[in-house]
C-alpha cells in the first residue's frame, strides 16, 4: 500500500467517490487495441454509440473518430458493430 492512500477517518462513508472515476486509467486492462481505418470509416458513429466506456471521441474539427486509449479496455464491441469493417483489433 502506498502512503498516498487515505485512512478510514479521511474518506467519505458508504463508498461515496471523492474523486472522479476518470482518475482510474482502465486502458491498461487491454489485450487487443482497436485501430481505425479512416479511409473505410463512413462516420456513422455507431462505434461511438456502442462503446460501453465512452472511449471513442468525435473530433468535430478534424471530422473523425479518435480512440481514448487511457480508457479503452479493448472489448472489441466497436469492431464487431462497425458495418464498414473499419476497425481492426490488434494485439498490444
Amino acid at each position: 500500500m502506498t502512503s498516498k492512500q487515505k485512512g478510514w477517518k479521511e474518506i467519505p462513508i458508504a463508498g461515496v467517490c471523492w474523486t472522479p472515476t476518470t482518475e482510474y486509467l482502465t486502458g491498461d486492462w487491454r489485450t487487443f487495441k482497436p485501430v481505425p481505418d479512416l479511409q473505410k470509416c463512413n462516420k456513422c458513429l455507431l462505434c461511438y454509440v456502442y462503446c460501453p466506456d465512452g472511449a471513442i471521441e468525435w473530433k468535430r474539427e478534424a471530422e473523425k473518430i479518435e480512440f481514448n486509449y487511457n480508457y479503452c479496455k479493448g472489448c472489441g464491441i466497436c469492431a464487431n458493430e462497425c458495418r464498414q469493417e473499419a476497425i481492426k483489433m490488434v494485439r498490444e
Binding site: M1, Q5, K6, G7, W8, I11, I13, A14, G15, V16, C17, T21
Partner: peptide, 13 residues
Amino acid sequence: MGPLDLYDYYFEH
C-alpha cells in the same frame, strides 16, 4: 454510493 471498492479501500469502509 456503493461503487466497486477493492483491496485499496473496502477495508477502510
